[in-house]
Design a protein around this nucleic acid. Structure first.
Lengths: 237, 237
DNA sequence: CCAAAAGTGTTGCTTGTACACCCATGT
DNA sequence: ACATGGGTGTACAAGCAACACTTTTGG
């Protein structure tokens, strides 16, 4: 981070260099009605007014980029302790026409069923199916593309769903989530066997009878399991 | 990146927020004498004088973080078009006691045999085997740990070596590289079959006779191959 | 009864892994 | 001759994918 330069004293070495706005932009994913969705906000001012934007904010003096992202998520969804993962930094000097802003991007997964819907609604935000995304400002489309492939990466080496599904879910719902993430189908029998083979789910003695005649057992994620991101769930690519 | 706020005009929205020093820190890996090595620089001034440091620099106004990393690499190794991959941002507000600096980190792979050895030597830099790294400044040890696991990730889903080995190499050398990266042994026969099964290497009609009695064919990476990071080379973890 | 999902079982193929075995040759 | 790595083959296990089949029950 620092070239040695013994003529300069301590603080001069930093002062030689420019400072930058650093933003965090979050690709917030949720799952609803069998679709993977992304939360976007309408930009309220020019340029690009009316275009859609990822939720973001600026990094302040006293916080890490992770803390900034958590703060933004709390402000916009009312949720604490959200699943957050650092993605790629986007930093082309001209990416934001308003100023030179370096953006650290994040993938956030939230359960649509428990977030603060009023908070989201009054900001004009909208959940967009990832298959039908609107035009976005700046390079946000590239950011989302990057976030999506990171999400697929995650879902392929570990079982995700704890962060996106309701507390209880059927294996069909979990499979539908994976089908939404990978935009392909999975064999129901094989998917079931694979998922149950890693010992991460716990079967409840309750059945969901609304989605099938026979009724399917609900499952939930075991507590205190170290999630082990080491099992291959699906082949990817 | 921006909350709507129609009272404020365009540029005020940015001016409300603080700016930050943004650094790039590169974990520069090379391969030599059967060992994976990391290039470190002695810090020339207090605090932490004498401790070792990753090579880094500050992001300037007119460059992306990738360009900044490339510039730093060129200045320190004399090499252009180095393999560079974004790793994680480190941003704890107190990570650098000199000032609040957000560091974007990179993994760089270079061929030790062709870099500018004089340039490196006169800066006091040293190639450290990754198994015997010295104490480093700030959070650089965490940065290196992160870089190492990213390197393993890369090596497990794609065939690396083009960036670390000489133009021509034997399969034993390639295997030794992988053994250095993963700190484990691989079965020579199985490794050979796996590596050759993805059609990325080209056998030359030259043999290396210095490392074995029988002599082993040299191989090189095929040109213009899209490197396809999609094949599993080794199981990881 | 039929459709539709739940759940289990079977089979064949691919891949990984351990290891045997011959080859070539410098010492 | 023998130790060493080069290179190939084999045999077994694990994982994956395709799909058959049985169960349950609402319409």
């Amino acid at each position: 981070m620092e070239l040695e330069n013994s003529i300069l004293n301590f603080s001069d070495i930093y002062k030689q260099h420019p400072k930058h706005y650093v933003a965090v932009d979050c690709s917030i994913f949720g799952y609803e009605d069998g679709e993977l969705k992304l939360l976007l906000y309408p930009r309220g001012f020019e340029p690009s007014q009316g275009k859609w934007s990822l939720m973001g904010g600026f990094v302040q003096e006293n916080e890490s980029v992770e803390e900034a992202a958590g703060r933004v998520l709390l402000q916009t969804t009312g949720l604490k302790d959200i699943f957050l993962e650092q993605a790629t930094a986007f930093s082309r000097p001209d990416r934001d026409p308003g100023a030179r802003v370096i953006s650290m991007t994040f993938v956030a997964l939230i359960r649509i069923d428990i977030h603060d819907k009023d908070l989201v609604r009054e900001s004009g935000a909208h959940w967009w199916p990832v298959t039908k995304l609107p035009a976005m400002i700046f390079d946000h489309e590239a950011i989302v593309e990057n976030a999506l492939s990171l999400l697929q990466q995650e879902a392929s080496i570990g079982l995700i769903g704890n962060e996106l599904l309701p507390e209880m879910f059927t294996l069909m719902q979990l499979r539908n989530l994976y089908e939404a993430i990978f935009q392909r189908t999975f064999d129901p029998g094989n998917f079931r066997k694979k998922v149950l083979s890693i010992d991460l789910l716990e079967r409840l003695n309750i059945k969901n009878t609304t989605e099938s005649k026979k009724g399917a057992f609900y499952y939930k994620f075991k507590k205190n399991e170290p999630g082990l991101r080491t099992e291959r769930i699906v082949k990817f690519p």
